[in-house]
């Protein structure tokens, strides 16, 4: 899967998992921060995104500091997933 296709898939999965009503994949900027600004997600959402990674990509993030970097944006999430799949 290309990174563009993965980012599109991630956006759809985030919208579904977090029940982001009235948000479409096109509304989510690849590089916009997911937390605080941008989508305005909070700490509970970060736990849900960790679960999303585990369920859909079999990636378990153990270190919270690492999680913070991975979940910065859709771009960082996609890059991390691809790196894990290649490893």
């Amino acid at each position: 899967m290309t990174i563009e296709a993965l980012k599109q898939q991630l956006k759809e999965q985030i919208i579904e998992a977090l029940n982001l009503q009235d948000t479409r994949p096109a509304d989510i900027d690849d590089n916009a921060p997911l937390f605080g600004e941008g989508l305005g997600l909070d700490s509970i959402d970060s736990l849900e995104l960790m679960v999303l990674l585990e369920r859909n990509y079999q990636i378990k993030v153990e270190d919270p500091r690492e999680g913070r970097k991975i979940l910065q944006s859709v771009q960082s999430m996609a890059e991390f997933i691809l790196a894990q799949q290649l490893a």
Binding site: I44, L47, E48, V51, E54, R55
Partner: peptide, 13 residues
């Protein structure tokens, strides 16, 4: 479904 792993915290809370 997920064999007691990857459980969503929101539903639990």
């Amino acid at each position: 479904t997920y064999h007691e792993t990857a459980l969503n915290p929101t539903q639990f809370i």
